[in-house]
Design a protein around this nucleic acid. Structure first.
Length: 596
RNA sequence: GGUCUCGUAGCUCAGCUGGAUAGAGCAACUGCCUUCUAAGCAGUAGGUCUUUGGUUCGAAUCCAAACGGGAUCACCA
């Protein structure tokens, strides 16, 4: 980054001095040189032909000569059509490398003073987590870590959707069909047990609709009139009124679910600084609705329901409170937004929520703006694409989901099989082996879900288990493990990486230079990932770095090297790569093993 | 129907604010382990970047339209 800036600055000077063209250094666009040409950075001269009154080759030639003469970093150049390819001095690469070695916090940006709240996970307490939630959890966790690396103060929040009609559905089904079943009595994990009744509700509900339809009732009408639905609505009302029996059942079932979630969160390695519960925020939401009525930015219809008119923002009229006074989804989100800001005055508040809710968040932001809330502007919906199965969309109610807990178990089993097949398990205690399988399983899974641009939908095929080769988490983990072996050996030989000097080292191998060039990029990559909220940028970087290192590893020998300086340099280079692999994978929530 | 979004190799995906002959991985084929971990490395093959126009020195990238997926427009969350 620093190197690029220096070169850009020189080019800016050259354009001024040779052609009297004024271009700011930060306007000078450098790109990495394509592999088939010599050089590391390329400057495109086409845009300047008119101003310079010269052809693109002539400009390139003139700039190249100027840089070779005046820029110490530039060793040489070549011009192909309108492309000026610049070669960087070996000493400059080594200087950059030494510099980063001496920064223990290389990759961590300086404190920005910005507060960023990241809400993610936000589960419903009526069913266990599935593959879609995994993408959400991994994204939210990773984006939080990336933002920390960018120097922001991050608070990870989890808003638990613990109330509402959907919760009443599983409660009702449990009441009717549960026979007092408990996690203890059935051996089922709490969230799975509750989820079972959610599915049962839907099944029974559909049967009722069919029955009514058979009696000639209109389908839409039947959905509203089915006794189970009426009972669920009644239950919701009782809940809001504080009916002790309903509230007790609710507490009981939620506590089961929380125990289940805790276990899953721990297992998949995500965490939160603060939990919010919808049951604790929806009342505040109602107050905000009241405030809006007083400010006359909301209005009440004849039936008593409260609405906001957003047609002048290109949106529709939106219901904020039902006629019976109960709250809807957005009501509690209004309250939560206020509460969040009270707790943690943020500059930015991210909501990691699937893109099916794009409209909802437009509305939320617009409503808060109408209320004149200062924090409305900082709201940002980090919208991500759904995970599709080959059969299409996952639906909890229909049971066509890939269960998160099961998936993790399957991945661990795959990791075990692969490792055993490769015979890489000798010297491991059973406990270490189990830990390794978990590390690999989570690495494969997280990397798989994070390497894709968050905004895009992605496909997961449960039939084909996630790969451990190629562009995968285990590939990066493997690269790290190999370096660890080298560092262990170096330590045995008494070589201390930190103190190792290689001041007289010369003749950088092509692959070594390529690795350094990758390492130099890291801070820019972190900034980019932070700007775009895209862990995929980090994932691709880790992969590229590992690939560059593996090429070096293949072509250049370390311990057979007779030149002492070269050997020390290569060990130091390896150590630095290991450091950044570990660091970048940490930003994805992935651990790297020392042996595998 | 309105709005939004996506369309790159057989499959899964990269491709930054426009730049050279569009890149990886998987799958297929060929080499490389008496030398630091072969979960690796090197190579072959595979493309009208959905289509058509436009902007320009130059378009996978920007604009418009068409076609084809998807999301949303609920007193569900």
């Amino acid at each position: 980054m620093q190197l690029q800036q220096t070169i850009s600055q020189r080019i800016s000077e050259a354009l001024q001095s040779i052609f009297q063209i004024a271009v700011d250094a930060d306007q000078v666009a450098l790109q990495p040189t394509r592999k088939e040409f010599a050089g590391s950075f390329t400057f495109v001269t086409f845009p300047y032909t008119k101003q310079a009154g010269k052809g693109p080759e002539q400009i390139g030639q003139a700039l190249g000569e100027y840089l070779k003469e005046n820029a110490a970093e530039i060793k040489g150049f070549n011009v192909v059509k309108g492309f000026l390819n610049l070669e960087v001095e070996e000493a400059e690469w080594l200087r950059l490398f030494r510099e980063m070695m001496q920064q223990p916090g290389y990759g961590q940006a300086e404190a920005s003073g910005r507060n960023v709240m990241v809400e993610y996970s936000s589960p419903n307490t009526n069913k266990p987590l599935h593959l879609g939630h995994l993408r959400n959890n991994f994204l939210g966790y990773s984006v939080s870590e990336i933002l920390k690396a960018n120097g922001h103060n991050v608070l990870k929040a989890n808003l638990v959707n613990d109330r509402g009609i959907h919760i009443c559905k599983s409660m009702l089904a449990y009441e009717k069909f549960g026979n007092g079943e408990t996690p203890q009595s059935s051996g089922l994990k709490g969230d799975h047990l509750v989820g079972k009744y959610y599915v049962q509700f839907d099944k029974a509900y559909k049967e009722q609709i069919e029955e009514l339809a058979a009696q000639g009732v209109d389908k839409e009408e039947a959905k509203k009139k089915a006794p189970l639905m009426l009972e669920a609505q009644d239950m919701l009302k009782k809940w809001e009124e504080g009916d002790p029996a309903v509230v007790n059942l609710w507490k009981q079932m939620n506590s089961w679910v929380y125990a289940g979630f805790d276990e899953t969160y721990r297992n998949i390695g995500v965490d939160f600084d603060k939990f919010y519960y919808e049951s604790g925020t929806y009342m505040l939401g109602k107050e905000l609705v009241e405030e809006g009525l007083q400010k006359e930015v909301f209005f009440r219809k004849d039936d008593g329901s409260v609405w906001v008119d957003l047609t002048d923002e290109g949106l529709d009229e939106k219901l904020l409170l039902r006629a019976d006074g109960t709250s809807v989804y957005i009501t509690q989100d209004l309250g939560t937004a206020q509460l969040k800001y009270n707790d943690f005055p943020y500059d930015e508040s991210l909501y990691v929520v699937a893109d099916e809710q794009n409209y909802h968040f437009q509305v939320l932001k617009a409503v808060l703006k109408k209320l004149g809330k200062p924090y409305a502007e900082g709201i940002y919906h980090l919208s991500y694409g759904m995970v599709d199965l080959p059969s299409g969309k996952m639906k909890s109610r229909e049971g066509t989901v890939v269960d998160a807990d099961e998936l993790v178990l399957e991945m661990e089993d795959t990791a075990r099989q692969q490792t055993e097949e490769l015979g890489k398990i000798e010297g491991f205690t059973p406990e270490q082996a189990r830990e390794l399988y978990h590390t690999l399983a989570m690495g494969a899974l997280k990397y798989f879900l994070l390497k894709v641009d968050p905004k895009k939908r992605m496909l997961f095929n449960p039939q084909e288990s996630i790969d451990f080769r190629g562009n995968t988490g285990p590939f990066v983990q493997y690269s790290h493990a190999r370096i660890s072996a080298i560092l262990r050996k170096a330590a045995e030989m008494g070589i201390q990486v930190e103190a190792a000097s290689f001041d007289d080292f010369k003749n950088l191998h092509e692959t070594e230079q390529e690795v350094i060039a990758q390492l130099v990029n890291y801070p820019a990559v972190i900034a980019e990932a932070g700007k775009l909220y895209a862990p995929s940028v980090i994932a691709n970087y880790a992969y590229d770095l590992a690939k560059a290192y593996n090429r070096f590893y293949q072509e250049v020998s370390i311990f057979n090297e007779t030149d002492e300086q070269a050997r020390r340099f290569r060990i130091a280079l390896s150590a630095m790569v290991a450091r950044l692999l570990r660091h970048s994978m940490r930003l994805l929530g992935i651990n790297v093993p020392d042996r595998m």
